[in-house]
Amino acid sequence: MKRGFLVGIVCLAFTLSLLGAEKEVYVVGLDAAFPPFTWVEEGQFRGFDVEVMEAIAELQGFRVEFRDLPWATIITALAQGKIDVIASGLTLTCERDQVVDFSLPYWEVDQAVLVREDSQLNAITAFFGTSVGAQAGTTGYQWIEDNLLGKAPGLSLRPYETYDLAVSDLEAGRIAAVLCDTDTAQGFVDAGRRVKIVGIVKTGEQYAYAVTGGDPYGLLPRINEGLRQLYQSGRWAELVNRYFPGRPVSPVPLKRTELCE
């Protein structure tokens, strides 16, 4: 009884110290292999998410430092508090919501079906009796696993470490199609890779920034407020036009569509 009480006190003190704490510099984790959202060029972190995060930090008066982590470790690293924020084109899902906390969404994407430039396949035939690829641990991969695998006859799914590798295999003819986020897919097409988009799967996914579960530093309200200020100041539209020419600008933060219990 006495011991339980002591443990309780220690836990409470620990939680309080976490809640009250503010950090000098917050570590923002990203997977720098996801242009146009995140990449590294000549040693500098670049990309839409990098600039938005820097702007929010400036507006809300905190400091950030970026750290590159591969996709395979990034979510667990945030869940364990090795980093404080993820800003890396991360889709909000209920599964991820169990281990990390999300800000309000700022971006909407669907899944695009990429095939080779000279391919006759369409968005339907690409998934019958073929092998297709996606980056492991992404929502695109998950979508195929949940909706097609075992249902579409003869379909096999190959995981890749990055989307670039998947597209390389697609170009080489080793797989028939790649499913990836619409903006990423457009990026490959614009860069002159020998692929084309033949269809869009309307998944209506939303990107959001994420913090360690329980938001120990109280960052979520500041990020949400920062997004609002960024939109109102007009800088949001400026950034969207620069990184995604021709894409319509919608007011952020967006309304969250994915509701989890």
Binding site: A33, P35, W39, V40, D164, G192, R193
Partner: peptide
């Protein structure tokens, strides 16, 4: 894999932002 930017990670950077 633990976030050290060594030769291969630098290489990945080039590959990903030049899309190839």
């Amino acid at each position: 894999i633990v976030g050290v930017v060594e030769i291969l990670r630098q290489a990945r950077y080039i590959i990903s932002y030049t899309y190839g």
